[in-house]
Simulated assay, not measured.
Amino acid sequence: MPGHILPYRGVTPRIHPDAFIAETATIIGDVEIGPNASVWYGCVLRGDANKIRVGAGTNLQDGTIVHVNHDRSGDYRETGGGMPTLIGDNVTVGHQVLIHACTIESNAFVGMAAVVMDGAVVEGQAMVAAGALVTPGKRVAKGELWAGRPAKLMRTLTAEELAELPYLAEHYQETAASYMAERTG
Rank of each mutant, 00 (worst) to 15 (best):
H4I: 11
L6D: 07
R9A: 13
G10Y: 07
V11M: 15
V11Y: 08
T12C: 10
P13H: 10
H16T: 03
A19M: 12
A22P: 03
I28D: 08
D30K: 14
G34I: 05
G34K: 05
A37V: 07
A37D: 03
S38R: 00
V39L: 07
Y41V: 04
V44C: 12
V44R: 06
N50I: 02
N50R: 06
K51N: 00
V54G: 04
V54E: 11
A56T: 10
T58H: 02
T58I: 03
V66R: 00
H67G: 08
V68M: 09
V68R: 10
N69Q: 15
H70R: 05
S73K: 13
G74K: 12
G74N: 07
D75P: 09
R77D: 10
E78H: 07
T79I: 05
G80P: 06
P84Y: 11
T85S: 01
G94V: 04
L98F: 15
I99F: 10
H100G: 06
H100E: 12
T103Q: 08
S106C: 14
S106Y: 06
S106N: 11
A108P: 04
F109T: 09
V110P: 00
V115R: 06
V115A: 14
V116M: 09
V116C: 09
D118S: 09
D118V: 05
A120C: 11
A120D: 08
V122R: 02
V122A: 03
E123V: 08
E123G: 01
G124N: 03
Q125M: 14
A126T: 02
V128Q: 02
A129F: 04
A130R: 03
A130H: 10
L133Q: 02
T135G: 03
P136D: 11
G137A: 08
R139K: 07
V140G: 09
K142Q: 15
E144S: 12
W146Q: 04
A147F: 05
G148D: 07
L153M: 13
R155Q: 08
R155V: 13
L157S: 04
L157Y: 00
A159Q: 13
L165I: 15
Y167W: 15
A169P: 01
Y172W: 10
Q173G: 06
A177G: 10
A177K: 08
S178V: 08
A181R: 13
E182C: 04
